[in-house]
Design a protein around this nucleic acid. Structure first.
Length: 232
DNA sequence: CTAGTGATTCCCT
DNA sequence: GGGAATCACTAGC
């Protein structure tokens, strides 16, 4: 299957070996499917972050699905706002949000246009460009911790709100693209409750990961917090 | 390894 | 006004 996003520049600059390592570009039809279909299919795929310092390639190992239509855990559940607008647009675009006053998280919009939904990229293995990612993740003791967690992943790849709405299927590739990689062996794919999701939406087993992979983030069930009396 | 807690800003109610 | 699709740090096993 020939994919339109396979640019000659990538092939010539990186050579056959590098191209084979992350594979053909995924096209919009990949994302034009229900979130619960796309989410496990993203495991083992390769996210490419193109930047001046060189590409950073990430093998995806953990994701969570969010369906804006019937899912109280989704940012899109209560309707379109300034923050979540991208999730109501066409599939194959990046929805990036800012949270906890400090962090960014990266989602890929799925579903046909008009039905909001996305897949949160929770963890991955940096397979190329670790020298670019390491300075951004100074607290990571080992390389497998560079993108072990959704905000860590965004930090390692230098992703922030300025990339919200990026078309990951654009030709030629822009800041972000996704490649076929080596799809995870279905026998090693596990699913369970989503991390950090409060209320009834938390019960859906819509977190997917590659079993035994060291880059998968530790599971933490949502815990209600006491109000931090932010005085003084 | 697990569990508890402060950090810090935006966005929606 | 207050919660948030989290992380880093600390203590203790």
């Amino acid at each position: 299957m020939i994919l339109e996003g396979m640019s000659e520049t990538e092939t010539s600059e990186r050579g056959p070996a590098a191209t084979a390592a992350h594979g053909d570009r995924l096209t919009r039809s990949f994302f034009d499917r229900p979130v619960l279909t796309v989410a496990p299919d993203l495991l083992g795929r390769v996210l490419a972050r193109h930047e001046p310092g060189g590409p950073v390639l990430l093998r995806i190992t953990e994701v969570e699905a969010y369906d804006g239509q019937d899912d109280p855990g989704s940012h899109a559940y209560r309707g379109r706002t300034a923050r979540n607008g991208v999730m109501f647009g066409p599939p194959g675009h990046a929805y990036i949000y800012f949270t906890y006053g400090m962090w960014h998280c990266l989602n890929l919009v799925c579903h046909p246009e008009g039905r909001a939904g996305g897949v949160l990229l929770r963890a991955g293995e940096v397979v190329r460009g670790a020298e670019v990612a390491r300075p951004r993740r100074a607290t990571a003791r080992r390389d497998h911790e560079l993108a072990r967690g959704p905000a860590r992943l965004a930090t390692a790849l230098g992703v922030d709100r300025s990339l919200d709405g990026t078309d990951v299927c654009a030709t030629p590739a822009v800041a972000l693209s996704v490649h076929s990689g080596t799809p995870a062996d279905p026998a090693r794919v596990r699913s369970g409750p989503r991390t950090g999701v409060s209320g009834p939406g938390g019960v859906h087993p819509w977190r997917f990961w590659i079993d035994g992979d060291r880059t998968v983030s530790p599971y933490r069930a949502h815990r209600p917090r006491n109000r931090t009396t932010a005085g003084t």
